[in-house]
């Protein structure tokens, strides 16, 4: 008995993979239309699920009661379905709902932004600009949805057992890899009741950190979280140089991506005199990918940011004038 969750970046073929996987394994596919049908069976008089069921307003506090009811209803419906069926669940925060449950496999389907924008352009007949915006909006919605329901960061790699990068895989190959993982992890040997019993309540749980390489990255992430700015940590790598066989020999992976700003941020806490190599890489990146918006935060920028909030002030200063929670 098993539940497979498929989380997907827009345009990375997540929907196609989920549908074909469900068919191949004989599992029930849980997507928007399945949930709508099931909900109308359970309660024919109830209001229908909103069209945009993974939608959360920009500010959680602005969520209206109807939307909140739908958002909170969906996990219940999915759990009810899991009581009687093996499932492939596409999106809907299922990686959060079933996190750490035995008998589950959490798959994330990703692809480079360029690749995804191209797919969306051809499938939806959009201009490149429209496709980029559409992609960004959808990413933001999904970030907010998971954060609202489970206080989790969609980009946290610890939420997933398997991440598939679709630039280099066909849908068939992706399906085979997922099936291999299903076999290897023996998730179908688990009793169905064990899956349901282990579902973590939607209340806040202790979450491990995102395994940031440096304290400055962790502090910066905390800062972004404080202001409710969606971000992903090291989500994309950009090849800078390939050898004669086409193998990537130099690449650059910016530390953060802020989808709402469509902005990559590279933090460096090396001294100014030591950042030449990094500067060279960023110049190369800008030349090869002119559409990429990237900013470097040097050591001095990071410290200035910290200083602004009084986090570097000498002990005596902070002791005398430490701002209280309500100070502005």
């Amino acid at each position: 008995m098993a539940v497979i969750t498929i989380s997907r970046e827009p345009g990375a073929f997540g929907e196609e993979i989920a549908a074909r996987l469900a068919g191949k394994l004989g599992f029930m596919l849980v997507d928007k239309s399945r949930l709508v049908d099931y909900w109308s069976e359970v309660d024919p008089d109830a209001a229908s699920i909103k069209n945009d069921d993974e939608w959360i307003p920009l500010d959680d506090l602005d969520i209206d009661s109807e939307t909140e009811a739908t958002v909170r209803l969906l996990p219940e419906l999915i759990v009810q379905l899991a009581e009687d069926h093996d499932l492939v669940v596409i999106g809907r925060g299922a990686q959060g709902l079933f996190r750490n449950c035995p008998g589950t496999l959490h798959v994330k389907i990703v692809a480079s932004r360029q690749f995804r924008v191209r797919n969306i352009q051809s499938n939806e007949e959009m201009s490149s600009r429209e496709a980029r915006r559409w992609t960004r909006d959808l990413e933001n919605q999904r970030f907010r949805y998971l954060r609202f329901l489970y206080h989790l960061n969609w980009a946290d790699p610890n939420l997933y057992d398997l991440t598939l990068q679709m630039n280099r895989l066909s849908i068939d190959q992706a399906l085979n890899l997922i099936c291999c993982a299903v076999d290897e992890m023996q998730i179908q040997q688990v009793q169905r009741s064990q899956i349901i019993e282990n579902i973590v309540s939607e209340s806040e749980e202790d979450r491990e950190n995102d395994h940031f390489v440096h304290f400055s990255e962790e502090e910066f992430a905390r800062f972004l979280e404080f202001y409710g700015i969606p971000f992903s940590y090291e989500p994309d790598s950009f090849p800078l140089e390939t050898n004669a066989e086409g193998k990537v020999v130099e690449a650059f992976t910016p530390d953060f991506y802020l989808p709402e700003q469509d902005l990559y941020i590279e933090l460096t806490t090396m001294k100014q005199s030591l950042v030449t190599r990094k500067n060279r890489k960023v110049r190369k990146l800008r030349k090869l990918y002119p559409e990429i918006n990237i900013r470097i935060f040097y050591q001095r920028d990071f410290y200035r940011l910290m200083a602004k909030y009084g986090l570097l002030a000498p002990e005596s200063e902070t002791a005398d004038h430490e701002p209280k929670k309500e100070e502005l």
Partner: peptide, 11 residues
Amino acid sequence: SYHGTQPTSGA
């Protein structure tokens, strides 16, 4: 305002 340093500084 942000006050950092704490494991969870809220929102």
